[in-house]
Design a protein around this nucleic acid. Structure first.
Lengths: 343, 343
DNA sequence: CACTTCAGTGGCAGCGCTGCCAAAATTTTC
DNA sequence: GAAAATTTTGGCAGCGCTGCCACTGAAGTG
């Protein structure tokens, strides 16, 4: 739960002037401390004349309020913790943007950390951020260690789980169903007449959500009495190169393949590049389908078919729900299959 | 400097149990508060027996130390603020990863914010983060408003400016010279025999660093007595679609062009897609050169020539310098021109 | 054996702010 | 014009922790 880590080296720059405090401002303005506090937070009542005096003193002294002290004195904290699996995937950066944009307008500050898709690290990071007594903790996905869950419950702060709704939410979940996305993708491919379908994916053990899509996809095929013609699951994070190598591998096996479902757009883009390089005609010889509908895949010579996911919206909505003090709930923001030129 | 924004709504979840404090742990363990504090921070001396008692109490009560209180009591703060222009550009996400990875090992916590390339917003965000009394503030680039500089100076905390060294640093700067990168890119293109060179760029007013590369590039051409054959500067953030449209535009003007320098790899990738779509042969008909050496551009059918920039390394190094308490300095991490199949 | 030494410990005063309460100033009311 | 209602204000006790200092008792010293 708590480990005695060795001290972080604190501010090395020695404070030249002992920083201005609220008391200094009060003295300068010739009013009481609480009055300054009220004016600065625009909270409670005070006269216009007082406000002017205080603001003048603040300006003159270059006072910057100390939120650390403020947060300690008032019990609530304006901090929101955001813990994401990775930043190299644009998906999480999008979520982060959405969250911070909605938060900053309300005077909240984001503290954040990256888990590298490691649940144990997530647990450690949750412990670390809880020490800051955040008003809310945002996590990606619904899968967490028991320790993480326990700490989160005990902390009493709001918990927002993002980008997934397939499972049990701790408090609020905002996202969409990956399982359903996988299912519908399969349905769409079948509708278009493809029957020899391959899957090229990445590291399922760590990326739970791509695993859920894969399961949904298989279910979609099974419903039509079909199964995957080929599959290649790379033991690495998703990337263009893995996607390219993965498709190359699948095709090298010689079995006829008329469509390929990739675990996401990075992988699909790699597959697309493989086809371009090998002069494999798309979609005549082979159809490609990705996931996320990244901007980049909309601007390839032939736009790659994909599934649009509301990433920024997920972040924004989560922040809003938290700000509103919404009750525990699961918000399904849905997804949209976008046809490209590749199916 | 400071504005009276209206209150953020604080923790809406009502604390069920008045959270465990260090005093509770001390009582449970039958020792003094300072002893618990010493054990938990592994600081000062205490017996193994005491340590065990304290840890047992911590475990039993599920105590999570309150760093807000800790930071207030000790003057230094283990918070580091990171302010980036954007998150949609992978470059800044990389820097962020580098920074947080190096920081978390040392018990520091990152707080972060996004400016959207707006210096005024940067100033507001600096004011906001300074209220958390961070041990360091990390910013991208060397261009800041006077207000930002003034606040940063007055704060007395370390200031790290990342990804640029062409200019006056406030405290520590870590990065490389964009001007020089532009110059060397021009030299390289000239070396390869190209003479009818075009530039396709994005929004220079906001992205200072791409402006510096452009200036360096022009200088490189001028040194050889040349100037740009064509140029197209999009009034938008860099993206694949802008790059594609930009190149299309330049080529439509009918002037012979044998090489194109793009403001970055996103733009270059767009240009590459345009060539693929229009069956323009690369590099026979036209050579392409980007900037950043993104992974994705290394895996296109023909790898796109680019300039590798040490992004994660910049973040890591900056964090290390801060942790070491290094003196003010400018660290040039350099860059590397990487040949692709497109020049 | 009286002396110093020092690891191990507890007490308590803040850190800079907010929240509460009561006092003071102002306005309203009859 | 005095009383009542209201607005504005200041004082001060914490928030939960750390840093300092003083204290303990066991070990080391001559």
């Amino acid at each position: 739960m708590t480990c005695a880590e060795s001290e972080p080296a604190l501010t090395p720059a020695d404070q030249k002037s002992p920083l201005i405090t609220l008391t200094d401002v009060a003295a300068e303005a010739g009013v009481g401390e609480s009055t300054v506090s009220r004016v600065l937070r625009n909270h409670g009542s005070f006269s216009e004349k007082t406000r002017a005096k205080v603001m003048a003193a603040v300006e003159k002294l270059g006072y910057v309020p100390n939120k650390i002290a403020g947060a300690l004195a008032s019990t609530g904290s304006p901090l929101v913790a955001i813990i994401v699996p990775s930043l190299s995937n644009i998906v999480f950066a999008d979520v982060l943007s959405g969250v911070t944009k909605a938060l900053e307008a309300k005077g909240h500050q984001a503290v954040f950390a990256v888990t590298d898709y490691d649940p144990a690290k997530e647990e450690a990071l949750v412990a670390a951020v809880l020490a800051w007594r955040p008003a809310a903790v945002m996590l990606v996905g619904l899968e967490h260690t028991d320790g993480t869950r326990r700490m989160l419950h005990a902390s009493g702060c709001r918990v927002l789980e993002l980008l997934d709704i397939d499972g049990e939410a701790i408090d609020i979940a905002v996202g969409f169903s990956h399982h359903e996305a996988g299912r519908q993708t399969a349905a769409r491919l079948l509708e278009s007449g493809y029957r020899n379908i391959a899957y090229v994916g990445h590291d399922l053990k760590h990326d739970m959500r791509s695993g859920k899509r894969f399961a949904g996809f298989l279910e979609g095929l099974a419903n039509a009495g079909l199964e995957l013609a080929e599959q290649e699951i790379r033991d690495a994070p998703s990337s263009v190169s893995e996607g390219r190598a993965g498709l190359a591998d699948v095709l090298s096996r010689g079995r006829p393949i008329d469509a390929v479902y990739f675990s996401n757009d990075d992988m699909a883009l790699g597959g697309y590049f493989h086809c371009l390089a090998e002069r494999i005609s798309i979609p005549d010889q082979i159809a490609l389908m990705g996931f996320n509908a990244l901007d980049i895949c909309r601007h390839t010579p032939q736009p790659i078919a994909s599934v649009f996911t509301p990433r920024i919206e997920t972040g924004r909505r989560a922040a809003e729900l938290f700000l509103e003090g919404a009750p525990s709930q699961v918000v399904d923001l849905g997804f949209t299959i976008v046809a490209g030129a590749t199916i």
